[in-house]
Write a protein that binds this DNA or RNA. Structure first.
Lengths: 337, 337
DNA sequence: TGTTGGCACTCGAATGTAGCGAGTGCCAGT
DNA sequence: ACTGGCACTCGCTACATTCGAGTGCCAACA
């Protein structure tokens, strides 16, 4: 049986009320608060259908209805209009991000901002190394047999590693090698660098170049250096006894695993916001939560992801709007920088 | 009335049992589990005295006794011997820390290790900039009017800032300036650098030096760049309903404030472990918790602090032992590096 | 066919009552 | 100074009762 307009309207009303009040919503309350133009009895019939179709359910026999994951999904896909941010929120975003001095600062500020605006857990991925390009590589001698390799990317990220040299090496050699490396790699996307490093090694074939190249390749390739910032875990405690009953601990544990957090941004795209509701999450411990994520970057490119995580019972329209807005601002900021 | 030996013994038994079972302990249970050599009635008399003195209290009239903050304090000061780590724990520490590749890695690994071993919230402060010395300063041109200033400290920490130059500047000038700066500052404790930078500016007095010096001073002086790593917040959820009843949220909030975390390490010293129990904490939101902290650094110097935070009902002897052990290992690691 | 009012029914939450038992404080005896 | 005994307290659990929100169903109606 297809759902007619009124049934959809009923579903929307249920979702909105439940999100607002956090309590199962009954037929009477529904017709009182929403101008549905029909009696409670009619609404009850509609609700029975919605329940058959799996969009809502009853916690107990004599309670009101609560949306299921599937109900939220329908709501997000077809029933909700993205709620535009209030001017106050826009101002808050600008004020908060305007003073950022470097990349670290941008990331920290945005993650806190996001947590504050959505009152949920916020996650911001640092601009992904693999999606950036090399701006500059520096080799700094720290002793006669040790170098510090510093890589700066066009997104402002800085990575450093220690290189152990095979033996004492004059500074001039280092300087020369640095020149060669920069010539080869500057401006190149990180993904495209490894073959160039190989070329370099083959062409020069001396032990120092070799030693540097090994570490350099690690730095360029190793994805495990992807980093994320987290904020607002305290907001989880707000729900403790209700939606997330008892599952708080596993959620906190999951949030401490960088690997898991990175998964949230697996396939992010700029502009398109992704919503994963409850069971749609791959990570088992996060099945009681919803994740709203999107990509960000200068212009329409994507250098990283950001998003928020909260109970499935969240205010999707505002959350989505906020996540998008913050992503756009952060992207702009990176473009200027 | 002074507390005689047996009364102290009773207090110790109460603390140990309560920590182990998490339930108020009564006189009968006490004589059964500990070889006190006296009857429950005698113990009751002792307990009455201990209660008068404020070392223990009764949650309700007909319940057993629970240590107060003051009781824990006495226990920690006079009654507990530091429990040596098990070989398994020592091995775990070594294995966990051995593979660390850089400073970031060391800090991350140790904070996770600490959280895991103590099953509590762990906090590790990055080696404090103010306590380190300059190893090397690098100036990397990223465009004709922009430099990246990279500072490497002897603890392995790397700080970077962007410098906007007053106008296009030839690379040679930059190289020369770098040499001058390094001559002046290499090996100097950060605290002692500002006057030297002043000298440099006065001596050279050109606009480029000026621009660099401004940023350099910021980097050298600004304490707000102190950073901390956090792990094990999920462990807080274990206590939720019991010790920390309801206060979980404010605690999580406090833990998100770097400023507050840094306060935990305000006056840390190497070797001496500091224990702050309940009310002894300055931060109001942490009054239901205890903090065990110590300093670490190569040799007997201190470059940062680390510690754990948990409910006042914690296993102090093991926690203290673990915190100390990890601090020592991390210190050693920094010494090698 | 869709909508409505009415009504019996269900069941969770709240409230009240009673008994149990762990634990105490006190006291008299050794 | 210690101990056994005893009356007393009071939180906890179990059980019974009530209350009411909310439902499903049905017959009536447009």
């Amino acid at each position: 049986m297809a759902l007619d307009d009124r049934k959809l309207e009923v579903l929307r009303a249920i979702v909105e009320d439940y999100v607002a009040t956090q309590e199962p919503v009954g037929s009477r309350a529904l017709v009182e608060r929403h101008a549905l133009g029909v009696s409670p009895a009619t609404v009850r019939n509609d609700m029975a259908v919605l329940e058959d179709e799996g969009y809502i359910r009853q916690p107990h026999t004599s309670a009101g209805r609560v949306p299921t994951d599937r109900g939220y999904r329908l709501f997000v896909d077809r029933l909700s209009k993205v709620k535009p941010l209030s001017p106050a929120e826009r101002r808050a975003i600008e004020r908060f991000l305007i003073g950022a001095v470097d990349l670290d600062d941008v990331v920290h500020r945005s993650v806190r901002l996001l947590a504050q605006l959505t009152r949920q857990v916020a996650v911001v991925q640092y601009p992904s190394l693999s999606r950036s390009a090399v701006r500059h590589l520096e080799l700094v001698p720290v002793s006669t047999t040790r170098l510090l390799l510093v890589m700066i990317t066009d997104t402002g990220r800085v990575e450093q590693r220690i290189v152990e040299l095979p033996g004492p090496t004059p500074v001039e050699d280092i300087t020369e090698l640095r020149g060669a490396i920069n010539n080869k790699l500057a401006g190149i996307k990180l993904v495209d660098t490894p073959p160039l490093v190989q070329e370099l090694v083959e062409h020069r074939s001396d032990p120092v170049t070799n030693a540097v190249a090994v570490v350099l390749l690690e730095t360029l390739v190793e994805r495990h250096e992807e980093r994320v910032a987290l904020a607002g875990t305290a907001n989880l405690a707000r729900f403790n006894s209700l939606d997330l009953a008892g599952s708080l601990r596993p959620i906190l544990e999951a949030l401490e695993e960088e690997v898991i957090l990175l998964k949230l941004f697996d396939e992010v795209q700029a502009g398109s916001t992704r919503v994963r509701i409850g069971d749609e999450n791959e990570v088992a411990d996060l099945r009681t939560t919803s994740v709203v994520s999107t990509g960000y970057g200068p212009g329409s490119t994507v250098v990283g992801g950001l998003g928020v995580l909260g109970p499935t019972r969240m205010d999707y329209p505002s959350t989505i709007a906020t996540v998008r807005a913050v992503a756009r601002y952060v992207g702009d900021l990176l473009a200027q920088h």
